[in-house]
């Protein structure tokens, strides 16, 4: 009875770690379930010869990140604040910023 608080806290921490382990198992299970979905999407990428994902449709240089040109707004300088929020989240592709 005297050690009720400590036992409770240890049990809570133990439960937390169990849930943490559970999250890893859940992730593995969800990954297996999602494989078919990703394969289906990958087939479309192959068939349509797509170069980019539909993450940001607001501007051409964020819709097609990999094909952005050097003169797109968000590439004025790294971390430039700009009109489109997604341009601040996504960085210019590395092959544009690398010296030729």
């Amino acid at each position: 009875m005297a050690k009720r608080k400590s036992v409770l806290v240890l049990a809570a921490l133990g439960a937390g770690f169990l849930l943490f382990g559970g999250s890893l198992i859940d992730a593995a299970w969800k990954r297996d379930a999602a494989m078919a979905r990703m394969e289906a999407a990958s087939k479309w990428v192959e068939r349509l010869e797509l170069t980019d994902l539909v993450l940001f449709t607001e501007a051409r240089y964020t819709r097609n990140l990999a094909l952005a040109d050097r003169f797109s707004a968000f590439q004025d300088h790294p971390m430039a604040f700009e009109h489109f929020p997604s341009g601040s989240v996504a960085l210019p592709p590395r092959h544009l910023t690398r010296a030729p």
């Binding site: 289906a40 999407a41 479309w44 994902l53 539909v54």
Partner: peptide, 11 residues
């Protein structure tokens, strides 16, 4: 299909 949305949503 919705499953491919990440690649095809706006196509």
């Amino acid at each position: 299909a919705y499953e491919s949305a990440l690649a095809t949503s706006d196509l």
